[in-house]
């Protein structure tokens, strides 16, 4: 193949795209996870609350809480983790409230996202940025 200016630009663009891929890797999977959960439905804002600390000194145990008035299921994702999926809560008949809390692992400073499937079949999401200071001097 003769190297013309046009093919050089295309090659360069391709290389840039390929270089950009690893960074996009986990984002793409989290998008896949979201669309697998919602079935491609649109996600609004509203009846969901995600409580997470602003700063977590230890990324190994970050306390989070999710709550919603009428959620049937809540999916929690950590966008910056090697595997973004964190947990799925399904509320049964005897759930006293549509709320739960747990402790999660975060690989670094990132957004934590909670998506709820409401009883009427619509989806809402909330997100929160958590700063993780792995060095752990409280900074």
């Amino acid at each position: 193949m003769e190297l013309t200016r046009r093919s050089a630009i295309i090659l360069g663009a391709g290389a840039l795209f390929a270089a950009g891929l690893p960074k996009q890797g986990s984002a793409a999977t989290s998008e896949e996870l979201i669309s697998a959960f919602t079935g491609g439905a649109e996600i609004g804002a509203g009846d969901i609350e995600l409580t997470a600390p602003e700063i977590a000194e230890n990324g190994n145990t970050v306390p989070i809480a999710v709550s919603s008035g009428s959620a049937a299921e809540i999916l929690v994702l950590a966008m910056g983790n090697p595997t973004p999926n964190v947990a799925t809560f399904k509320f049964g008949k005897l759930a006293g409230s549509r709320a739960a809390s747990t402790r999660i692992r975060l690989a670094g400073t990132q957004d934590v996202v909670a998506i709820a499937k409401l009883d009427d079949g619509s989806f809402v999401q909330a997100s929160s940025t958590v700063k993780v200071t792995i060095g752990g001097c409280g900074g």
């Binding site: 190994n60 145990t61 970050v62 809480a65 950590a78 983790n81 595997t83 999926n85 964190v86 947990a87 799925t88 809560f89 399904k90 509320f91 049964g92 008949k93 005897l94 759930a95 006293g96 409230s97 709320a99 739960a100 809390s101 747990t102 402790r103 999660i104 692992r105 975060l106």
Partner: peptide, 19 residues
Amino acid sequence: VIEVTLEPAISTNPYFEFE
């Protein structure tokens, strides 16, 4: 009451609080 699917991102000694 509740059913939870856990992934590797749940901390050591999994803790849950619910109503």
